[in-house]
């Protein structure tokens, strides 16, 4: 079986399990939306202020609440399931890529689900919005990669729900910079290509790290 077929089947499996638990769609996304409603009540409901702060707050919510997408039940296999996948001859790098693809797809879903809430409540400027078709996936892939690597090293650790976000958040800063500055660039009519390159570079560096670490990591979580 080819590498990419393995990637596809692993991702399909994760998303199939997720479709049963519906954790992201029915729990995490509404939770994130509720946060977007609460924030103005704390910082002030002044319309120009919200319009200006909206995009930044959106990315913070995506990044921090997105941790729950990474920590979701369907991303965690028990030892028996991990043993099964390993004995089916799935290459660890393919298992990594498949898990990353599933998590990235769900982060993207989370981003898209929060979008309308942001527009409705904060009325942000939407100049250059077609670029979102590039920015949103690049951030989602970065979070998926970081999340899968961090979840890998915290597998079967009792405190993983607290430890994983601590490992991810400081390293996710370039994603936050890239995303917020690209939107800021669009708003001001500046060039955003450097920020897209930054996002792409982060994704690439993480993808290479994750693929190279896949085999040693698999041996570490027996």
């Amino acid at each position: 079986m080819t590498f990419w077929r393995q990637v596809y089947e692993v991702a399909r499996k994760d998303l199939l399990v997720e479709s049963r638990t519906a954790e992201v769609a029915l729990m995490t996304a509404p939770f994130g939306a509720a946060a977007l409603i609460l924030i103005p009540l704390a910082i002030g409901t002044d319309a120009p202020l919200l319009s200006q702060l909206g995009p930044g707050l959106y990315w913070i919510v995506v990044l921090l609440f997105g941790m729950l997408v990474i920590l979701r039940k369907s991303a965690v296999d028990g030892q028996a399931q991990r043993d099964l996948v390993r004995l089916l001859g799935i290459e660890p790098a393919a298992a990594f890529a498949g898990a990353t693809a599933a998590t990235s797809a769900l982060v993207l879903f989370f981003e898209v689900a929060l979008g309308p809430i942001l527009i409705a409540l904060y009325n942000p400027e939407l100049r250059g919005w077609p670029w979102l078709f590039v920015i949103l996936p690049l951030v989602a892939i970065g979070m998926g990669l970081l999340g899968t690597i961090a979840s890998g090293v915290t597998t079967s650790i009792g405190t993983r729900t607290s430890l994983t976000p601590l490992l991810i958040v400081p390293l996710s800063l370039p994603l936050l910079m890239g995303a917020t500055q690209a939107l800021e660039g669009l708003r001001l009519g500046r060039g955003i290509v450097p920020w897209l390159i930054l996002l792409f570079a982060v994704d690439l560096a993480l993808a290479v790290s994750g693929v190279l670490a896949a085999r040693p990591l698999e041996e570490a979580v027996t």
Partner: peptide
């Protein structure tokens, strides 16, 4: 050692 080494390298790249 194995998990820490992987995290150490990923962090250093980032």
């Amino acid at each position: 050692a194995r998990r820490a080494a992987i995290m150490g390298i990923v962090a250093a790249v980032q």
